[in-house]
Protein backbone atom coordinates (compact mmCIF):
# COMPACT_ATOMS: atom_id res chain seq x y z
CA UNK A 1 0.00 0.00 0.00
CA UNK A 2 2.78 2.37 1.04
CA UNK A 3 4.86 1.55 -2.06
CA UNK A 4 1.85 2.11 -4.34
CA UNK A 5 1.29 5.49 -2.74
CA UNK A 6 4.97 6.39 -3.19
CA UNK A 7 4.86 5.35 -6.85
CA UNK A 8 1.69 7.39 -7.37
CA UNK A 9 3.30 10.36 -5.64
CA UNK A 10 6.44 10.06 -7.78
CA UNK A 11 4.41 9.76 -10.99
CA UNK A 12 2.35 12.78 -10.05
CA UNK A 13 5.49 14.77 -9.26
CA UNK A 14 7.06 13.75 -12.57
CA UNK A 15 3.92 14.64 -14.56
CA UNK A 16 3.60 18.01 -12.82
CA UNK A 17 7.26 18.74 -13.52
CA UNK A 18 6.79 17.88 -17.18
CA UNK A 19 3.69 20.07 -17.51
CA UNK A 20 5.48 22.96 -15.79
CA UNK A 21 8.53 22.65 -18.07
CA UNK A 22 6.35 22.37 -21.17
CA UNK A 23 4.41 25.50 -20.17
CA UNK A 24 7.66 27.30 -19.38
CA UNK A 25 8.95 26.42 -22.86
CA UNK A 26 5.82 27.78 -24.56
CA UNK A 27 5.64 30.96 -22.46
CA UNK A 28 9.36 31.80 -22.58
CA UNK A 29 9.72 30.84 -26.23
CA UNK A 30 6.75 32.94 -27.31
CA UNK A 31 7.22 35.96 -25.10
CA UNK A 32 10.92 36.48 -25.88
CA UNK A 33 10.53 37.28 -29.60
CA UNK A 34 7.37 39.30 -28.96
CA UNK A 35 9.16 41.42 -26.35
CA UNK A 36 12.09 41.79 -28.70
CA UNK A 37 9.86 42.88 -31.58
CA UNK A 38 8.38 45.58 -29.33
CA UNK A 39 11.91 46.68 -28.52
CA UNK A 40 12.77 46.80 -32.21
CA UNK A 41 9.65 48.77 -33.13
CA UNK A 42 10.49 51.16 -30.29
CA UNK A 43 13.55 52.31 -32.22
CA UNK A 44 16.41 50.16 -31.00
CA UNK A 45 17.53 47.31 -33.19
CA UNK A 46 17.99 43.77 -31.92
CA UNK A 47 21.59 43.90 -33.11
CA UNK A 48 22.37 46.23 -30.22
CA UNK A 49 22.02 43.44 -27.70
CA UNK A 50 21.67 40.42 -29.96
CA UNK A 51 18.49 39.20 -28.34
CA UNK A 52 20.01 39.08 -24.90
CA UNK A 53 16.54 39.51 -23.39
CA UNK A 54 15.52 36.37 -25.22
CA UNK A 55 18.40 34.52 -23.66
CA UNK A 56 17.43 35.83 -20.26
CA UNK A 57 13.87 34.65 -20.75
CA UNK A 58 14.79 31.37 -22.35
CA UNK A 59 16.87 28.46 -21.24
CA UNK A 60 19.75 30.29 -19.53
CA UNK A 61 18.02 31.12 -16.21
CA UNK A 62 16.74 27.55 -15.96
CA UNK A 63 20.21 26.14 -16.59
CA UNK A 64 21.73 28.50 -14.04
CA UNK A 65 19.04 27.61 -11.50
CA UNK A 66 19.52 23.88 -11.87
CA UNK A 67 23.32 24.03 -11.89
CA UNK A 68 23.55 26.25 -8.83
CA UNK A 69 20.64 24.72 -6.88
CA UNK A 70 22.49 21.74 -5.42
CA UNK A 71 25.64 23.80 -4.78
CA UNK A 72 23.66 26.56 -3.08
CA UNK A 73 21.89 23.93 -0.99
CA UNK A 74 25.23 22.46 0.12
CA UNK A 75 26.65 25.89 0.98
CA UNK A 76 23.46 26.73 2.90
CA UNK A 77 23.64 23.49 4.88
CA UNK A 78 27.30 24.12 5.70
CA UNK A 79 26.53 27.63 6.95
CA UNK A 80 23.60 26.33 9.00
CA UNK A 81 25.70 23.59 10.61
CA UNK A 82 28.45 26.13 11.37
CA UNK A 83 25.92 28.47 13.00
CA UNK A 84 24.50 25.61 15.06
CA UNK A 85 27.98 24.48 16.07
CA UNK A 86 29.05 27.96 17.23
CA UNK A 87 25.72 28.33 19.05
CA UNK A 88 26.28 25.09 20.94
CA UNK A 89 29.85 26.05 21.79
CA UNK A 90 28.64 29.35 23.22
CA UNK A 91 26.03 27.59 25.40
CA UNK A 92 28.65 25.17 26.71
Amino acid sequence: MKSTLTTLKNNLRQRTGMILLFSYGIIAGTSAPILLSRCATGGSSCTTCGGACGLALGIVPLVLFFTTKSRAKKVGQNILSMVRKTGREKVE
Binding site: M18, L21, F22, G25, I26, G29, I59
Partner: peptide, 23 residues
Protein backbone atom coordinates in the same frame (compact mmCIF):
# COMPACT_ATOMS: atom_id res chain seq x y z
CA UNK B 1 27.12 21.34 -17.19
CA UNK B 2 25.23 18.09 -16.81
CA UNK B 3 21.52 18.40 -16.15
CA UNK B 4 20.57 14.96 -17.43
CA UNK B 5 18.88 14.01 -14.17
CA UNK B 6 17.68 17.47 -13.23
CA UNK B 7 16.12 19.14 -16.24
CA UNK B 8 13.92 16.99 -18.46
CA UNK B 9 14.84 17.82 -22.08
CA UNK B 10 11.74 16.23 -23.63
CA UNK B 11 9.16 18.42 -21.88
CA UNK B 12 11.05 21.67 -22.39
CA UNK B 13 11.97 21.08 -26.03
CA UNK B 14 8.37 20.30 -27.00
CA UNK B 15 7.36 23.47 -25.13
CA UNK B 16 9.85 25.43 -27.22
CA UNK B 17 8.56 23.66 -30.34
CA UNK B 18 5.04 24.83 -29.47
CA UNK B 19 6.39 28.35 -29.05
CA UNK B 20 8.24 28.08 -32.37
CA UNK B 21 5.03 27.13 -34.19
CA UNK B 22 3.08 29.88 -32.41
CA UNK B 23 5.68 32.56 -33.23
Amino acid sequence: INLSRKLNPSALRYGFLGAFVLV
